[in-house]
Amino acid sequence: MKIKKPAFNLKKNAHLNYVLFGAVLCLVPLLIELGLLRNSYLTLVGSVIIYSVAAIGLNLLLGWSGLISLGTAGFMGLAAYISAYVTVNLKLPFEVAVLLALSIPLAVGILVGLVSLKIEGLYLAIATLSVSEILRKSFEEFGDITNGFSGKTAGYPKLLGFFQLDKYGTYLLLVVVLVGVMILIHNMINGQMGRALNAMRGSEAAAQAMGVHLLKYRLVAFALATSLAALSGILYIHFIKYTYPPTWTLGMSLNILSAIIIGGVRNIYGTILGVFVVFAVPDLFLKQIPYFGAMPGFAYIINGILIIVVIMYYPYGLIYLGNDMKKLWGKVKAKVKP
């Protein structure tokens, strides 16, 4: 007979899990203050959180809806510049900046969503790529707003007009936003929308026959993905405090895309793991390796090889590594025990 499960199960309650995950992330500043971690790790973990927000949004598009977008970087940059311009040049409160920086990319995203009904697959990917390229060129040319190649700076956010956040405060804000996004997306994909998106990915015609409104769900998926990318851009500009056009190239979009594939498509924790592998592992570990670490491009090579190896041998993403290890361990145990 099985043992009765306790009423309160940590493993089963996904929301609580997300909050706990956030709480663990909140420990980073504490560990730094205690001198256990280096100061630079705060920026590193912070950027992982920032890119994770955009990556979760893209995963909704790529994983759950099966639509490829290569425009993430453009939308992130757009939001970052708008937020910087509104807070620094117009001196408006942070909340107004967030509202503007979310709504303008959102409008563009909805337009792209409309376009996505006509074109698909690779064509859509490259259409979004050209949207992103148009935006990046505009960052270079709109010198009055974006400061061109010299780059744009912004400060830490000031909440509600009087609550000025410092470095740690902004970091906590990032964690709160990430946990919020995780819970939001979790609820969405486990609800009606998730099932509709799954049906659409499988077969558009069949989904339509079942009464799934294609236009509605595609628009919602694109709107969510772009607003999450925009949110990530806002967090970026107020945490890193500096941006210039070469940040928002195709390379950034591709990095976020590869993070999703490496970590695990259609998996929220997997996405974050992937972002960690792509954006943090080179700085954290690879550059620490003696001799090789100092070589130019070494981190790049290892990361490239890692991506290829993961895709070739782990097509479902690294997040399933744990599960497989457990299974393997179970097999080994069963063999050892007669």
Partner: peptide, 17 residues
């Protein structure tokens, strides 16, 4: 397609080396 992204990283890394 992501594999070709990995290839970009490898070539961009190997070249300066």
């Amino acid at each position: 397609q992501i594999i070709t992204l990995g290839l970009i990283m490898i070539f961009v890394g190997v070249t300066p080396f």
